[in-house]
Nucleic acid binder design. Structure first.
Length: 889
RNA sequence: GGUCGAUUAGCUCAGCGGGAGAGCGCUUCCUUCACACGGAAGAGGUCACAGGUUCGAAACCCGUAUCGCCCACCA
């Protein structure tokens, strides 16, 4: 596999990722490059992977997330850090239970018939299959995780951490159990936290219903969007300071349908401006009403069962689905003359984030985390700068949520997950909470105990991920070395679900925040900006892209499109753009390798005495590019750094340097020049490959070995540091001149439609500015190569300008392209006139500016100077163009 | 109802105080010995609208409009 020395080594004419990627990934694993040593003396850099769900396969969001993490890890390794990238997967309780249930149903089975034990066994089988599929996909992408450390949120170690945390929080009274109104999914048959409910606007109806006073004297009208909950009404409420309605307080009405006699009460929750100012109170089916019910000690009457079907409290509607019941009750109210009005009404309705069923506020016994005390610490950590969000704007989003946080319902009525470590006593009924199954009830000593049937919210275990994966609650070398982690890379969609809760748990149990930086990236959308989803059918499988374009092309595309705070619209044409870049790089390397094949000398020795302006220029440019890359990398500027390399390689290295180096490499300038140029080329490519390696590890690894830069892999080489290039600055200025002159010459050639391969016989350059005469004239050879001109004549300012030429004119120099009788004089005059007119407009604008006293007084001196120079340049150009025009006539 | 973001070339987006940039697409020319997945040269924009600050605004501030995201106990 190792290439001995340099050579084309069968480098294909176009870039083909297929033979490269698997080969190098295996080699990296074999060499143990990704292994993290907690006993290392190097500074630590650590990241925990946001564990993908074991529900299915990776999507482009994962590809982005992991590409960015990989770029950071690979860069830091080259910069001398001991890097731990902790990999693993999440059991994803409700999501995984749902997909496995569906699979079982498709086979004609049923979870309940199977029983809990058999079902859980089946989910583990699923986890083994899909978990390893996901890991395989991450490897295809090139992720440099320390795979020996792979963890799963339900493996033994992490389960132990979960139980420990539960017990400790319970002992601190930060976990409690109680009967509350929670969000219930009637399809998944489980409680959900507030976050797991997605609110969506729906078109509903707002019904006005009449409630008659039991004393027969009048009525009160209330509005509702959910007439079926009338069956659970236990009060009518008005605002205490509502003049219109306060006389009603204390009277009693008969609820429609049920005839239940209920009081009119007063409560601040009521908005006196809405409708009639009176509201029906259903404590068992509405979160607000629930709180009102607690304040007024109202009866809580559930009218539905756990599947959203009307129960025994629903009298004649019993057995109807909740929406069926709504229609039936509306009809009945209408027939009874109690339905006074009915208007269309758009309102927001909660849906289950996993199955999209409309959730039901439902009264049940659940476990909760008391979040307020934990949240206060979190906010303090972010405010004090211990945790930094990047981009910063997410700090505000985070705060807003933390400040309004409510208790977190953590119990789920599922089978797949961490069973709640709480046991109930058959004798005294008390609860024993313990990390391991208790032998007896801690209250009465009874041995007759049974464990809580419920499992924990999946996010409870992922909240512990940064330290549970490192061996907590044991004190391990990993925790010592790598906690807190350096940065968390994730999408904004799980800031609340995951990031906030990790901060809570990290601060509570480790006394340190779990990460220093939180880099929040955008969402990957399709080319039209649509969110990718299975139902829209616009999901792109990263593996399909990798198969077609290669992992490096996908990685580079994602990185280049990652600009802070913007969603990524991904399309194949964009991937092609970066795939073309890889081909360009590949061919540039091919060219370099061809040119190095006969290099016999010590190629690492650069003979500075033999270097020309373009050699010094490219070396200086590599150095400043390396410096810039370090800065961009430190600041998480993924898009900017990828584009910087793209522009440097294509726009400078390939477009200019490789072209300029050709004569020397062909030996046209002598052996010493050839050797020096070979050395420069060799040195430049080494740094370019290193700088690109974090983004395109496979391609750079392959080329690294073909170039023969060392026996070890590129990931073990060191990150380029800026180098002082003697004469580099002067060379850079000279090159700017050369580039400008060259562009002008090409322009003139195109003007007369001279084919690019046809060598122009002669160009004349009249240089007005004597300070640049040398840097241009001295480099005649370079300009000739780039412009494909046989002969260039340089003239001082006082020289006669040539006849019958078309011209390109700047303030400092003029280029004449003699075309003799071929010249269409009228056309050339028209062109120059247009040019002159454009310049006049420009000159007029600047001169207006310069005649503004305020501008001269207040603008910085260099700006004024810049404009003066610009005006002088424009005026000089106009003058020369006019001279030219009169000369042509 | 509240927050945040967006509005710049046909498309996707950079630029965030000193007279507008990239990629793709488009036009013209070119298979030259690294690359046609390429090269060279072009065309194309009152920087959403209306005010303000400033010597100077695409950029900063205040509105307006449109789009998008998130949050919310909208009966």
């Amino acid at each position: 596999m190792e290439q001995a020395g340099r050579g084309l080594a069968g480098l294909s004419k176009s870039y083909d990722p297929k033979p490269i990627e698997d080969k190098w990934y295996s080699k990296w694993i074999e060499d143990g490059v990704f292994k993290a040593d907690p006993n290392s003396g190097k500074p630590a850099f650590s990241i925990v992977i946001p564990p993908p769900n074991v529900t299915g396969s990776l999507h482009l969001g994962h590809a982005l997330d992991n590409t960015l993490q990989d770029i950071l890890c690979r860069t830091r390794r080259m910069q001398g850090y001991e890097v731990l990238w902790m990999p693993g997967t999440d059991h994803a309780g409700i999501a995984t239970q749902n997909v496995v249930e569906r699979a079982i149903r498709e086979e004609g089975g049923d979870r309940r018939e199977m029983g809990r034990e058999a079902f859980v066994k089946r989910v583990w089988e699923w986890k083994d299959e899909y978990g390893s599929r996901i890991i395989g996909q991450l490897k295809k992408l090139g992720a440099s995780c320390d795979w020996d450390r792979e963890r799963f949120t339900m493996d033994e170690g992490l389960s132990r951490a979960v139980r420990r945390v539960f017990v400790e929080l319970y002992k601190k009274d930060l976990i409690y159990r109680g009967k509350y109104l929670i969000n219930w999914c009637p399809r998944c048959l489980t409680a959900l936290s507030d976050l797991e409910v997605e609110h969506r606007e729906l078109d509903g109806r707002l019904y006005s219903v009449r409630y008659d006073f039991v004393d027969g004297d009048g009525s009160v009208t209330v509005m509702t969007t959910r007439p079926e909950t009338i069956l659970g009404d236990t009060a009518i409420a008005v605002h205490p300071r509502d003049e219109r309605n306060r006389h009603l307080v204390g009277r009693r009405v008969a609820a429609p349908i049920t005839g239940r006699v209920i009081p009119v009460i007063e409560d601040n929750m009521v908005d006196p401006e809405f409708g009639t100012g009176a509201v029906k109170i259903t404590p068992a089916h509405d979160p607000n009403d629930f709180l009102v019910g607690l304040r007024h000690d109202l009866e809580q009457i559930s009218v539905m069962d756990d599947q959203g079907v009307m129960n025994e409290n629903a009298v004649k509607y019993r057995g109807m689905d909740r929406f069926e019941a709504r229609a039936a009750i509306t009809d009945d109210l209408r027939n009874l003359g109690l339905l006074l009005d009915e208007i269309p009404h758009r309102h927001s309705v909660g849906h289950c984030y996993r199955c999209n069923t409309i959730v039901e506020p439902y009264l049940s016994e659940q476990w909760f985390v008391r979040t307020r005390p934990l949240a206060d610490e979190d906010v303090a950590a972010v405010n004090s700068g211990k945790i930094r969000f990047i981009p910063e704007q997410w700090t505000a989003t985070y705060h807003q949520w933390m400040e309004n946080i409510r208790d977190w319902c953590i119990s789920r009525q599922l089978w797949w997950g961490h069973r709640i470590p709480a046991w109930y006593c058959c004798d005294c009924g008390k609860i024993t909470v313990a990390a391991d199954e208790p032998a007896s009830c801690e209250s009465c000593g009874s041995k007759r105990l049974y464990q809580d049937e419920d499992v924990l919210d999946t996010w409870f275990s992922s909240a512990l991920w940064p330290f549970s994966t490192m061996g907590w609650p044991d004190e391990t070398p990993e925790l010592e070395k790598f906690y807190p982690t350096s940065v968390l890379v994730t999408g904004f969609d799980i800031i609340f679900f995951w990031v906030a809760r990790m901060i809570m748990m990290g601060l509570e149990f480790m006394k340190k925040p779990p990460f220093r930086d939180v880099y929040i990236h955008a969402l990957v959308r399709d080319e039209h900006g649509q969110k990718m989803s299975k139902s829209k059918g616009n999901v792109t499988d990263p593996l399909v892209i990798i198969e077609k374009y290669g992992a490096d092309a996908l990685r580079l595309t994602l990185a280049a499109l990652t600009l802070q705070g913007r969603d990524i619209f991904l399309s194949e044409s964009r991937i092609e753009t970066y795939r073309f870049f890889l081909n360009k790089l590949w061919n540039a390397a091919r060219f370099a390798l061809m040119s190095l094949e006969d290099a016999e000398h010590d190629i690492d020795e650069i003979d500075y005495g033999e270097l020309r302006v373009h050699d010094l220029w490219i070396m200086a440019r590599v150095s400043s590019t390396a410096e810039e890359m370090t800065r961009l990398s430190d600041g998480y500027f993924f898009g900017e750094s990828s584009r910087l390399m793209y522009d440097f390689v294509w726009g400078e290295l390939c477009d200019w340097y490789l072209e300029l180096s050709k004569p020397a490499l062909k030996g046209e300038e002598g052996d010493a020049r050839k050797r020096a140029t070979q050395s420069v080329l060799y040195s430049v490519f080494r740094d370019v490959l290193k700088l690109l390696h974090p983004v395109i590890p496979f391609t750079t690894e392959e080329l690294w070995h073909v170039f023969g830069y060392g026996d070890t892999i590129i990931g073990r080489s060191s990150w380029p540091v800026p180098r002082d290039v003697p004469g580099g600055d002067a060379a850079t200025s000279a090159m700017e001149c050369i580039q400008a002159v060259t562009r002008a010459m090409r322009n003139l050639r195109a003007e007369v439609k001279m084919p690019p391969q046809q060598e122009a016989p002669e160009m004349r350059v009249r240089i007005k500015d004597s300070s640049i005469f040398d840097s241009i004239a001295k480099n005649e050879g370079l300009i000739r190569i780039l412009s494909r001109v046989n002969r260039i004549e340089f003239m001082r300012d006082d020289a006669e300008k040539p006849e019958k030429s078309i011209s390109y004119i700047t303030g400092s120099w003029e280029i004449f392209f003699p075309v003799g009788s071929l010249l269409d004089i009228d056309k050339e005059i028209a062109r120059l006139r247009a040019e002159s007119a454009k310049l006049s407009k420009e000159a007029e604008r600047i001169s207006r500016k310069l005649s503004n006293k305020n501008f001269i007084d207040k603008a910085p001196a260099e700006v004024v100077e810049h404009d003066r120079a610009a005006l002088a340049d424009a005026e000089s150009r106009i003058r020369r163009i006019e001279e030219n025009i009169s000369g042509l006539r």
